[in-house]
Amino acid sequence: MDGYDAALHLLDRQVVDREGQLVAKVDDVELTLEPDGSLVATGLLVGLPALLPRFGDRLGSWLLDKYVQAGEERADRALPGVIEFELVDDIGSGVELSVLRKGLVRPRTAEVPAGVERWRLGDLLGMRVRCGDLPKRSRVLDVRLAGVPHRTERPLVTGLVVGPGRPGSLFGYDRKPDLGPLAVAVVVRRLHRHVRGVDVGPGVEIDRAANEVRISPGVPLLPLL
């Protein structure tokens, strides 16, 4: 398997420190758009300011509003905590860190270094997809990251899983041909028969302002299995 799926393998997993103490859940993943146009996972976001926006466009922002109002005297109320991606040692049933949990999570400051943009995985998931060869109601269902998860490798976004449906409703049946039970696999694959993978690169434009992904004709759409 080349790479792994951010929503399937990373999002909502338990973060565990070097000694097995529980730290938090991966409430969201921070993606940084570098000057060269590449998108890299740079941090695990934790805490309610990271989690609440994932409850959907309207409900999520309403919840976040209420959460901020309930502590309006705090300047950092809307800022999530961050765990730098370099500290991730291994991604298995949980996300293992190479450090201890004490003093680990810091609020993510609002300032961004020049030339880069900070995105969230949660924003990308569920984005509308415009593509002539896909059904109209297609969305981004998952985001593919490069490499075996390890700190020496840059977790570069290499591809998108796109198609009709909701993010997280594939349950991994797009990744492993022999994932059972057969009856469930058949139903889930049938419901997602239009889902395709697409490599990030020329012809795939992620437009954050318009909240949509445009895929030009001719970009190869890859079947998942």
Partner: peptide
């Protein structure tokens, strides 16, 4: 742990 991992935060 698994309920939230597989169903996401909303359904979870």
């Amino acid at each position: 742990d698994l309920v939230r991992e597989r169903l996401g935060p909303r359904m979870g």
